[in-house]
Design a protein around this nucleic acid. Structure first.
Lengths: 219, 219
DNA sequence: CAGTTCCGATACGCATCCGTTGCGTATATC
DNA sequence: GATATACGCAACGGATGCGTATCGGAACTG
């Protein structure tokens, strides 16, 4: 589509070149407005205004609103944080606190809430976000849990998918779904709880006596 | 406002009375459309059409769209399910599976996602939903955990708020945020994990040796 | 300088939706 | 029957937003 893609070596295309600064400004403005107003609330006029650019300049690059929104989300990916070395338990705390900080930054929580609400209108967008951003980080946690199995910290037949969700979901709830304060100690509490549960041989042996005591107390 | 509120005993207000059937049809249609299209997508014309009613009939009862939406949500409350008797662990499984079934019914998940996305536009609506629907059920779970403390199943200084969220959040994630299959066994797994973590005296004694073993393995 | 493309500004056509109004008809009380 | 209200239908004014079109000027190539 773009003439720039064709001319690799020789002469550039004739005419005034497109301003790359305008392109960056448009994407930045779109990202902001996306978090503030959501997909439905975002308007091309507002994007152009905040970017300090005429509406025609936006439409010259993205022929429709949905294309702009998709490119805006794609630029979000960011590099995966490197996995630090150390005991699995401490690394888990560290990574989860990192996620928490990310969700609490700026308007990130609002942006994710907006995307959730619009997931049914634009399934492609939500899938893209999940594929590019969520899945890799989830994969990373899961590999960490595998290390935990090797270290004898987690029983080998544990449901790792479920464990990852038990680690992430409470933090997601307190940062994105229903923002509320959350301390490092609480994150550690979550990690220790999940690890304690994953170390348990098969549950019934542990829960049995307690419920028996309770039954005796109730009866 | 309504003349019906004034005339308690004697004569009814003059003129043709309002159709209560139309009122029910409007609320039902609004609820459906709210789940399908969200607050922003819901239009008064669509509500009237689906209810089989003229638009004026809607505006005669609710003077604006937001008022209709609020009344639509309020009718959702439904009675709190009675707390069954039995061992805390089993009752927890039962209640959580009940919540899971509720979220998986019909378009409930979509409705909640829509509300989440619109929470920033209409903070009053989200608060109302939380106050009327979420909080009572959360309170119920918390009281159940108090019973668990009395039974010696949970250590007395446990963070009950956090525990409730650790129980609910993973289910919320798999039913509302990112719908995926979930079995009764997985719900039980969550309950047992959280209970195992809450029984632990103070964590460090349990995690210590495992990380030590891991450190020996890594070094 | 000639040719080409980008840019900003403005205006437009088209569609959607909110909330209102007018009118003829239906259903109630006195 | 007189009166008062609700109902369905249709149309309207006002606002918003998408995507397009036009125009003068700016930037870059040969």
């Amino acid at each position: 589509m773009t003439p720039r893609a064709a001319g690799g070596l020789s002469s550039r295309a004739p005419g005034r070149p497109r301003s790359e600064q305008a392109e960056r400004a448009i994407l930045a403005a779109a990202l902001e407005l996306l978090g503030e107003l959501g997909i439905a609330g975002l308007t091309m006029e507002a994007v152009a205004a905040r970017a300090g650019v005429a509406k025609t300049t936006v439409y010259r690059r993205w022929s429709a609103k949905e294309e702009l929104v998709l490119d805006t989300l794609v630029q979000l990916k960011g590099p995966l944080p490197p996995v630090p070395d150390g005991p699995v338990r401490d690394v888990l705390c560290q990574l989860l606190n990192q996620m928490r900080a990310g969700w609490q930054r700026d308007g990130t929580a609002g942006l994710i809430r907006r995307l959730l609400g619009a997931a049914d209108d634009h399934p492609g967008l939500a899938d893209e976000y999940w594929r590019r951003i969520v899945s890799p980080r989830r994969q990373l946690l899961q590999e960490l849990l595998v290390r935990g199995i090797a270290a004898g910290l987690i029983r080998p037949d544990a449901d790792l998918d479920l464990m990852v969700e038990m680690l992430v979901a409470p933090i997601l709830l307190r940062t994105v779904i229903r923002p509320a304060p959350m301390t490092d100690e609480q994150v550690a509490e979550i990690v220790d709880t999940v690890l304690a549960g994953a170390a348990r041989p098969l549950a019934l042996g542990v829960v049995g006596p307690a419920t028996a005591a309770e039954a005796a107390l109730a009866g």
